[in-house]
Design a protein around this nucleic acid. Structure first.
Lengths: 221, 221
DNA sequence: ACCTGAACACCGTTCAAGT
DNA sequence: ACCTGAACACCGTTCAAGT
């Protein structure tokens, strides 16, 4: 009838897995670890989730739940809005963001997002091939920006991240200035993101501008 | 003096690990698996490689060995050339391409590539912050394109890939056409890359055009 | 310098059994 | 319907010992 452990639901397991990945790196997500956190035998999880691959899949699916479908005045604005919305969703669990990409066509939320985005791009005049490539690039761009945000070091435990960045900075600062002048000049920007909003705005703009340039080149022919 | 097993050198281990990842997915790369392939005890590997993390790091480093530094007439051509060269290097071992990104500042080949690319972008007039972001995006773009090339399914054994794509196609074909008309229209482009060169040209162009648009917007001010 | 043997603390997962 | 216990086949890694 009712579950013996009311907290042990599929959604709660997925949610906790996402949290663990953010706190201690995605390699810390194990069936046994989740089980002990829920005060339960490892095998109990197999009632709620078929296996670990499906758990990872469910984690990937979760990112598409809250993404807003494209809306805005023109198609450029819509493309930017949907990319921004994707970024916002992925940023909630950066360490698992890479799980989203292979799942976009395998969950309903992802398929609805794809359909709406494809419709928008084809309306704008892009070919079927271009539409597929541009839409995929939007998701890839969002994932890239989130997982590679400078200073994230997602594969490391949250507490050790500061130390990891410090070590990296020390290693770079020790390089010979005559051989690596530009690298040393860019060091701070590479190691830390001082303005996160500007970072994401720049990344999304770079992508959107590329698409817009392609569109302009085609329209003038 | 001489190693008992002449084949068991660090380079050979790394090379074989890259091959295994491509053939059977990166999760098939294990210390024990490599040991049995070299006809040796698992612990023998620890003489040549400190631990598994360092092995993965060395796999990531290997991608920077053959990358040509930026060359060409103007900076746009140079940016395209270096991105193309990166793509070419990563395509040799697609299943491990994602290991390259975190290693770029941690190996000498990567630092030299970074230095040359940074110099090129700063010469072109980009700010320190923009240079860091643009250069990172070049690498991210290359990795994205390689790891996400349609039909790759890198987490699966090479022999099962065809079957995996077929299953995905069947799942999509079963969707209601009235709800997913555009998704169905784009299905073939999403599942298979018929022209790989065109795929990579498109992806790199999209990125380069974005950078060029940014540059143009700044120059006119 | 290079490798083995035994051992430890972990994994994911199956299968039969409990309630 | 939901969970446990015991067991299996794997991991990465340490440590002492061999040659």
């Amino acid at each position: 009838m009712s579950p013996k452990n009311a907290a042990l639901r599929r959604d709660a397991i997925v949610e906790r897995a996402l949290e663990i990945a953010d706190l201690e790196g995605s390699q810390a997500v194990t069936i046994r670890r989740l089980a002990t956190e829920f005060g339960v035998t490892p095998m109990a999880l197999y009632w709620h989730v078929p296996n670990k691959d499906e758990l990872l899949a469910a984690m990937g699916d979760s990112f598409y739940a809250g993404v807003r479908l494209p809306d805005g005045a023109d198609w450029v604005e819509r493309l930017r809005a949907v990319t921004d919305s994707l970024v916002a969703s992925l940023r909630r669990h950066p360490a698992s963001a890479h799980l989203a990409l292979p799942r976009i066509l395998s969950c309903d939320d992802g398929r609805q997002l794809s359909e709406a985005t494809f419709a928008m791009l084809r309306d704008a005049g892009f070919s079927v091939q271009q539409t597929a490539d541009i839409a995929r690039t939007a998701l890839q761009t969002a994932i890239m920006l989130v997982t590679q945000e400078a200073g994230a070091e997602l594969d490391v435990r949250a507490e050790e991240r500061e130390h990891a960045v410090k070590a990296k900075r020390a290693a770079l600062a020790a390089l010979p200035p005559d051989r690596f002048p530009n690298l040393l000049a860019c060091m701070d920007c590479l190691l830390e993101t001082d303005d996160e909003d500007a970072y994401y705005r720049f990344g999304v703009d770079l992508y959107v501008n590329g698409v817009r340039a392609l569109h302009a080149a085609q329209s003038t022919v």
